[in-house]
Every structure is written in structure tokens, then in C-alpha cells.
Amino acid sequence: MRRFAPALALTLGALLPAASATPAPTSMATANAAATTRVPFPVTVTHALGQTTLPARPTRVVALGPHALDLLLSLGVQPVGYGEAAQLGVKTFGSPIRQIRYLGSRVTSAPLYVGDRFKPNMELLATLKPDLIVGEDYASAAYPALNRVAPTLLFTGTHSGDWQKSLPVLARALGREDRAAAVLARSRAVLNGARRALTPWAGQRALVVWNSGGQNRELYTVLGPKDWTGGLFQDLGFRLALPGAPDPAMTEGYRTLSVEALGALDPDVVFVVASGTNTPTRAANDWKASALAGRLRASRAGRVYFVPIQLMGRIRGPVATELATREVRRQLGAR
């Protein structure tokens, strides 16, 4: 367990805005209306890389990646720094980042872009003088260096149910436990409402796959219920179309198949998540150009839909749950 002395205060003017205790304007505002819990500090919390003690309530927080940003925004915290997915090729290194896909309208602090969410620039991070860094355990190789800059919490966020476990831990570290309870209640209400709207689709066999396009355009990774995306579709009332059980390859929620092998799953509906640097448009064009994909019953019925990985697989928090659910309803015409 590592302990930290409080960070020295540093004022850099408007360039480095402090984390805000005011919730960003979002559809989750009702959830954020709960009063902030006054947790006595120091506080010790357990996360994917061990235990971390925060000597005082954090006010300058860095979000490494959209998943961490989602969690922070849902708790009403605005970051001073942000690391994005490298696949997006963001070029504003060291400057305020304003183009944050799907979450940008909720960010009011103009956080500085610190580089790759898993390999951020440590020198730039240090200039921000954060008193908390939040990220995912994919950044575990950088964890010792991150900890030298500020107390760091890394969470596991890829599986269904992960963010619901991480959020209360982060809320405790931030002194905002009441907000976590409200966010969880809001998310349950969103899913319940979506299930009602999607009643005509209840029980339909949905094939949910990643596809990175390019040289791998004929390969599809089937997502099972343990994966966040697969779990979301199951929560919405679909039955996941999966390879024959028992299938050890699906233990973690993933199995890569050729487009030819997808035919054996015989889904009622297909959702293709354009992964890597692929886009829904390119994924749709590749699908339509494949004679094998066209033979699927779902293709013949016009029930194949294409969605972006940033929304449907990288953010994976309460805000993403609401936005992704809204996108599924839109594509299926379930208003």
C-alpha cells in the first residue's frame, strides 16, 4: 500500500482548470443531484493494482481514457487532464482537448491532452500537479511511474458489471459516495425503460461481434455475456447467439470466427461493432460485399446493424450505458 503527502497547490491560470464539484450538464443530472458525502480523510481504497491511500479529498484529477472519464463525469468531477485511445490519433498533445467523442459535451474544464491513455507523458502529467489519476488496468506497466506523480487508481472495466463495482470505490476516494448510489439507480432505470421499449425484440437471438476491417474484414469476434457490450445486449432482453457450449474460448466473453462460421449461429439479428480504427460505414460496406455474410438469415431480413467501438466498447460506464442504449433503440426504431 502506498501513501502520499498532499500535493502542493499550483495555479496555472485558465490553462489548467481545477476539477469542478459541479455536475456537467447531462441527462444524468438527476442522479448527480444527491449531496456529496463528507468522507473523513485519509481514505484507503482497493483497486485492480492494490491499495491506495488518499490523504485529502482530490480536487485535481486526471482521467486516463474514456472509461475513467465516464466514471468521473457521472460523479460530477471535471478532469484537469485526459488521455485518449491511441487509435483515434488525437494530435493536440499538451493542449486543451475539446473533441472527446460522445463525452465532450459533458466536459467543461478543457483538460490538457496527456497522450495515450495507457502510456501517457509523465512529464506533462507532473506539470498538472494532480492529486489523483484514474485509469484502467491496461496501464499497469505505467503504474509505478504514475504513482510517482500522484495517487493512482486503475480499474478493470471490460467486463459486464465492472463499472458498477468500480464506481463506489472511486466515489469513496473522491468523497462522493451518495452520488454513486444515485448513478447506479439511474442506470437501472435506464435499462428497465429500454427493455420495455424493446419488448418486440425480447428473446431474439442477437449475434454481437467486433470487426476491425482491413485485412481482418472476414474475421469476427463474437462477444459473450461476460463482455461489457455482450452483457449490455443481454441486459436489453436479447438472447446472445454464441458458439456451441461448452466453449472454453468464451470464458472471458470472446471467440474469433470466420464469416463462414457465423452462419452456424443462425442469429435473428446482428450487431457489428466497428473496432480498432474501423468505422461503421466501412464495416457495413465490407459486410454487404461478402457473399457469405449475405446468406445469413439476419442479412436477408435486413436486420444487421453497425455501431462504433468508441461508444459500444471503449467507454463502458454509466454514461456510455445510457448513450449506447439510446443508439440501439434508435437503430431498431424503438423510441
Rank of each mutant, 00 (worst) to 15 (best):
P144F: 09
A18K: 12
A298E: 06
E327C: 00
P168S: 12
D70S: 05
T325S: 11
A180N: 07
T37I: 00
R57W: 01
V134G: 01
G231F: 03
T52S: 12
G333H: 08
P130D: 12
K288M: 09
K226W: 01
V190M: 00
L72P: 01
G294Y: 05
Q78H: 08
P225S: 15
Q310G: 13
A34G: 05
V208C: 08
V304M: 07
H159L: 13
K288C: 00
A181M: 00
A180T: 05
L232G: 04
G94A: 05
V190S: 03
G230W: 02
A29K: 10
Q99R: 15
A206Q: 04
Q78L: 06
Y254E: 11
T30R: 14
T127Y: 03
Q51F: 00
R196S: 14
V80C: 12
P243A: 06
A145E: 13
A85G: 07
A18V: 14
G161D: 10
L72C: 03
G231Q: 06
P120C: 09
P25D: 14
F93S: 08
K91N: 14
E252Y: 13
S212A: 14
A245Q: 14
L10K: 14
R186M: 03
V114S: 04
L12Q: 14
Y254A: 12
R297P: 11
W210V: 04
L112N: 04
T279Q: 09
S95N: 13
K129I: 00
L223V: 10
V169C: 06
L170A: 03
T321D: 14
S140R: 15
Q87S: 14
R316L: 12
Y143L: 12
L72G: 01
A293R: 02
I97C: 09
L242I: 08
G313C: 09
S74F: 01
H47N: 07
A194D: 06
P200Q: 11
K226Q: 15
Y102N: 13
A293I: 02
E218N: 14
V270C: 05
T59V: 12
R314Q: 15
L265W: 03
A298P: 06
A68P: 08
M122C: 00
L236A: 07
L112Y: 02
V270Y: 03
P79V: 03
Q331H: 07
S275N: 15
A56Y: 01
G302A: 10
L240E: 03
K165P: 01
T277I: 11
K119Y: 06
G193T: 08
G76P: 01
L75M: 11
A35W: 00
L128Q: 08
V61K: 02
G294A: 10
F41D: 04
W163S: 09
D116C: 07
L242Q: 11
T229A: 13
L232H: 05
F271T: 10
P246N: 12
